[in-house]
Nucleic acid binder design. Structure first.
Lengths: 183, 183, 183, 183
DNA sequence: TATGAATGAGGATTCATTCAT
DNA sequence: TATGAATGAATCCTCATTCAT
C-alpha cells in the first residue's frame, strides 16, 4: 500500500497527472495491476491517498510548531505562522506543486477545501484571542487576507523563485510577510 | 481560427480540460477536424492560443489603466494596482480559473511565466520611479511580495469566495490590500 | 457498417457472446477499433444491430408469406403458420440460437419482446377473424398456447434435433403441429 | 461445498451470470477463494453443479409423481404430465430462468441434453405402454412433439407471463395443454 | 486442509492525429 | 483549401486462477 502511494507521488512529480497511468504506477511500485486495484478501488482513490498523506505530514508540522503561538504577542506569532508555512512548503515542494496545480480535477476538492479550512480556522482562532490588540472589526476578512497572503508568498517563493531567492532574502521575505500581515 | 479559440475557451469552461477533445472542439466551432489541424498543429497549440488571447485581454486592461499611475503618489497608485488586478480577474473568471488550474499540465508554463514577468516588470518600474518615497533597499523582493500578494488576494477573492465576499467587503479588501502593500 | 454487423454475427455464432470482444470484431471485419466505435457507440449497440437485422429478415419472410392467410380456412391457415415458423428458423439457425440463448443479458429484452409481440398480434388477429369457426372464448389464452407451441416445436426441431428429424418426419411434424393447434 | 452451490445459485438469481464472479461467490458463501478452488476446479464446474442440483430436484419431483401414471388412462396421464411440468418449473422459477438463459454459454449443453433426454424417455416409456390406445405409428415423433409442447408451454407460462396468467387461466391452460397433447 | 494476497491477460472505450479525396 | 473517415496506441479496470504460508 505504501509503495503504491509512494510510487504514485514520484510519478506525479516526474511526469504529471496525465502520464500517471495506473499500469505505470503498478509497474514502478513493483506490484501487479491487480494488486493495485485490491488496495485502491480507482485511480482517483490512489491520488486521494497521496493528497491525504501529504496533508497529514503538513498538518503534523503545523500543529507541532503552533501549539505555543496562542500565548505569544502579535508580531512573534506572525513570524511563527509564516515560518511554519515555509516549512510546510518545503516538505516536498515538487509534490506540493503537482497537487496544487493538477489535482482539482479529481473531484477531491473537498479534501483540499477541508484542509485549507483547517488552516484558516487555526489562524482565525489566534486572531480571536488577540482581538483586543488588533483594532479590527472584520475578523473573517482579516483572516482571509492574511492566510491567502502567507500561503501565496510562501508558495510562490518556494516553487517559482527558489533559485532567485537566496537564504538571506528568504529571511527578509519572512520578515516582510510578517510585517505586512501584522499591519 | 477565432471560432476555434472561442470554442475551445467555451468548452474548457463548461466541461473542463479532459472533456475538451479536439473532435469536440471542431464540432462546436463548426469546423472540420481536418481544418482544425490546419490552423493548429496540436491540441496543445490550441490551448496555448486560448491562454495567449486571455492574457492579451488582461494586459490590454492593465496597460490602459496603468499609464497614469507613474505620476501618482504611492497610496493612490497602490489602490489602482489592486483595482486593476480585480478588473483583470473579472474579465472572464471562469476561464481564468480553468486556465490557472489546468494549464500547467500543458507544459506551457513559460507562457504563464512570461506573463507574470510582464506584470512584475510593470510594477517594478513604478517602484523604481518612486524609490525615494519608499525607504526600501531590495526592490526585487518588494516587487515580488507586492505582486504575489495582490495577485493571490484578487484571485482567491474572485474565484473561491465570490459568494462570501459582499461588495462592501470587496471594497474593504481592496483598501486592505492596498494598505498592506503600501506598508 | 455492414461488415461490422456481419462479422459480429459470425463471431457470435462461432465463439459465443463472451468471446466476441469488440477488438476481435474489428479485426475480423477488417476495420480499426476506432472506426467500430464511430459507427456503434457500444458493444451493446452492435449486438442490437445484429438482432435487429435478423429480425428484419424474419419479419420479411413472415409478412410476405402471411398476406393471404386471413382468407383461408382454419386448417390451411395453421399449416401456413407452422410452415412460416419453420422457414423463419431456417434463415440462419445458428445465429438464431445464439441470439435466443445468450442475448437476454444485453438489456435488449425489449427488442425481443416487441418482436414476439408482433408475431403474437399477427396470429391473434387471424384468430379474431376466424372466431366463429373456433368455439373458443379466451382468445388471449388460445393465441398464447398456439404461438408458444409452434415456436417451441419449430425451434427445437430445427436447432436441437436437426439430425434426428428426416425430411419426412419434418413434414409429419408440420402436419402434427398444425393438427395440434387446430384442435 | 453445499454453501458454495447455494451461494452461486443465489448470486446467479440476484445479479446474473456476469456479476457472479468466483471471488464474490466465495465471499458470500463464507469460504475463502482458495477453498472454492479446492472443491471446484473452475467456475464452470461450479455452475455445472448448480445446474445438476436443480435438475436433481426437478427429477425427484417428476419421478415421485409419475410412478402411478403408467396404469392410468391416457387423458388422466396427460393431465398429470402437464401438472408435473408446472410443478417442476415452480420449484425455483427464477433460478430456472437464469439457468435456461445463461447456461448454454457455459458449454454444459450436454447436461441439459441428458436431462431432457431423461424426461423424453420417461414420457416415451409411457406412450410405449399405451401404444394400443393411441393409433400412432411414429412414437419418437409423438414424444418429441408432446414433451416439447408441454415444456414450452409451462416454461413460458411460469416465466414470462406469470402476471398475465391468473390461476383460473392456469387451470385452463393445463386443460388445454393436456387436450392438445392428447389429440 | 484453509487462506487470501498476488497475478496479468484481456476487455471496453477514448481521442489526438493523419491523409486520401 | 476543406473535409471527415480511419487509425491504433493507450487508458482504466475486472476476474478467473495460483501458490506460498
Amino acid at each position: 500500500m505504501d509503495n503504491l502511494i509512494e510510487a504514485t507521488a514520484r510519478i506525479l512529480v516526474k511526469d504529471g497527472f496525465d502520464k500517471a497511468s495506473t499500469n505505470r504506477i503498478a509497474e514502478v511500485s513493483g506490484v501487479s495491476i491487480g494488486s493495485l486495484y485490491q488496495y485502491f478501488p480507482s485511480k482517483e482513490a490512489l491520488v486521494a491517498a497521496v493528497i491525504e498523506r501529504h496533508q497529514q505530514q503538513i498538518m503534523q508540522t503545523v500543529r507541532s510548531t503552533l501549539t505555543q503561538v496562542s500565548t505569544q504577542p502579535l508580531d512573534k506569532a506572525m513570524r511563527r505562522f509564516v515560518a511554519v508555512a515555509v516549512e510546510a512548503h518545503r516538505l516536498d515542494p515538487q509534490l506540493h506543486r503537482v497537487l496544487a496545480e493538477q489535482i482539482p480535477r479529481v473531484g477531491k476538492l473537498e479534501k483540499l477545501e477541508t484542509f485549507s479550512r483547517e488552516n484558516f480556522s487555526l489562524f482565525r482562532a489566534y486572531l480571536e484571542g488577540a482581538r483586543d490588540d488588533l483594532g479590527v472589526d472584520d475578523l473573517e476578512l482579516a483572516s482571509f487576507v492574511c492566510v491567502t497572503t502567507i500561503e501565496a508568498l510562501t508558495h510562490n517563493a518556494v516553487l517559482h523563485h527558489s533559485k532567485v531567492l537566496t537564504d538571506d532574502r528568504m529571511e527578509a521575505l519572512i520578515d516582510e510577510a510578517a510585517r505586512l500581515v501584522t499591519g
